[in-house]
Amino acid sequence: MTQELIYSVTGIALFAIGLFGLIVAGHIVRKLVAINMMGIGVFMLFLATALHGPDTVDPIPHALVLTGIVVAVAGTCLCLWLAISISKLDNEKRKNPQQ
């Protein structure tokens, strides 16, 4: 049915745009936004597979997407923490260049 196809195509398109953004972007935060976008695209594709009709909804993709969101949050936070730590080290080095 058309609604499901729209979601699937949008999910794939988001994944592709996110992938291009990951390659193009220079700043780390943009790269992380791109990765999150790819994640959302995949989740959208999963949710599209849950639509089987007006009264049949498959709950397994919903549970998978919930798990995926938590994992994505954890991964993004870890990357952000690394970026902040690197930038802190760079700032300290800039203040004491002879260190």
Binding site: F15, L19, L22, I28, K31, I35, M38, G39, V42, G75, L78, C79, L82, A83, I86
Partner: peptide, 12 residues
């Protein structure tokens, strides 16, 4: 950080 980005890309 580089490994994290590559790992996330691979998992996705």
């Amino acid at each position: 950080l580089r490994y994290a980005l590559v790992g996330l890309l691979g998992s996705l």
